[in-house]
Computed example of a mutant assay.
Amino acid sequence: MPGQENMTDVTVIRGNVYERLSHVIDPEIGRSVTDLGMIVAIDVAPSHSTEGVRAPGRFDVTVHVELTVPGCPLTQTIQDRIDEAVASYPGLELVPHIEVGAMDADKLTGLVSSLKAERRENPFNKPGIKTRIFAIASGKGGVGKSSVSANLAATFSALGYDTAAIDADIYGFSLPGLFGVHSQPTNLNGMLMPVTAWGVKLISIGMFAGADRAILWRGPRLQRSLEQFLSDVWWGQPDVLLLDLAPGTGDMAISVAQALPNAELVVVTTPQPSASDVAVRSGLVALQVPLKVRGVVENMSYFDHAGERLRIFGEGGGTRVSDRLTDALGYDVPLLASLPLEPDIREVGESGRPAVLDSDGSLADTPLASSFTALARRLIG
């Protein structure tokens, strides 16, 4: 029959394009666009010139996409990935055209219900969970705990780990500013998509309306905030989850121990005795709750200037904390890293980019980035 060969070509192309789209991952949910039901139709037709002459080996491919919500912030990213999957089809020249719509309420409800049923409450307490969880703690404010959390998360991501971070410092949240985040999480019928910045999936109370007001939560309400961050946010299955805790040994540390008994505590201190003495108390919380202290990070340990290493804040604080926690807890609590004092941490961090990264998101070629890389590798090892 005339045209049957073309129809066979079109049918084969349509099936192959769909298979290629099964490898296009929604950047928020972490599933393929085909698994999520976002590809509703694929139209394939031979391309013709403006004079109506068919162009051999060239086809127009129109992909009809339904996004989870109208105006999805990652619409362009999804479109670019679909374009690439279609345009890189081997052996033929496929010209991609994308028609974008949004799921209706019933379809979205069904998708969210299936995701929630699969996840079931706190996803990080399932047997066999692969995620390594590090809770970053300090005895007092001002030691750079949040900067350590942000740069460590960015380092893990740049090293190729699927990385998530929760700003569990409800009172003094700072991760949104350190990552340059000014948007809110996408809400899919009550399930939140974390905001991704510099490769890290983030959630913070600072991303929500009214977050600039003073927060006076305690007890059950504070614990519920962490539970919501864990169970009402679609995290997927990250390799690493970091929690930036509030300073001290208050309610949030206890909530973390209850919600994430597999978390490992990393205590941040500075060299001077006043900071290290208080830091010990944040590690000793492990005597009251089932948390293992993974180790100690000494921040602002030294400053290299004109070939001379200056110990501006003294020295030995990290070692003191390590030794005292090892004695008190009965197992080795090592000094994991001594991080340099770098003006870039403040200057670059305040611009919304973790200081360990270059502007393209790769790890910078600096002593600071090298220190964080060694720390990340030691933690994950």
Rank of each mutant, 00 (worst) to 15 (best):
P334W: 04
E298T: 01
N122R: 11
G361Y: 03
V143E: 00
V33S: 10
L341H: 06
Y18H: 14
Q4C: 13
L335I: 11
I39W: 07
L357P: 01
S338A: 15
D360K: 08
K107G: 09
K130N: 12
P220Y: 14
H64G: 10
E51M: 12
I39K: 03
L67C: 09
R213K: 14
Q76M: 12
S351M: 10
G248L: 01
I136K: 10
L243C: 00
V100Y: 07
D365N: 15
K292C: 03
I345A: 08
R213S: 15
A253G: 00
G352M: 13
V289F: 11
T163R: 04
T131V: 08
G71V: 08
L287Q: 13
G142K: 06
W217C: 07
K107I: 04
A135V: 08
L357H: 00
A137H: 09
Q237F: 11
G250N: 01
L152I: 10
H64R: 14
V24K: 12
A164C: 13
N122V: 12
P238K: 07
Q258M: 04
I170M: 13
A158V: 03
E19Q: 15
T11G: 08
M207D: 01
T373P: 00
V285W: 08
P334M: 07
D251V: 00
L329E: 03
S174H: 09
F173I: 09
K130E: 14
G57M: 07
F134G: 00
Q237K: 13
V267G: 01
V100E: 11
A137Q: 05
W235A: 01
S88T: 10
P185S: 08
R281T: 11
S338T: 14
G206L: 08
D212L: 14
S338Q: 15
G295N: 04
T163H: 06
V200P: 01
K292Y: 04
G307A: 01
A117C: 10
G110T: 13
A158N: 04
H305E: 07
G283L: 12
G101T: 07
Q237G: 11
G110N: 14
I13E: 08
D232Y: 11
G330P: 07
N125C: 13
A211C: 05
L115S: 14
A259W: 09
L375T: 03
S338E: 15
V33K: 11
Q4G: 04
Y302D: 03
L245E: 01
H64C: 12
L216G: 09
S114R: 15
R20C: 12
T34R: 14
K201N: 10
I133G: 01
T131C: 10
L74S: 15
R20T: 07
T34W: 12
P290I: 02
L230D: 00
V333G: 02
R120I: 13
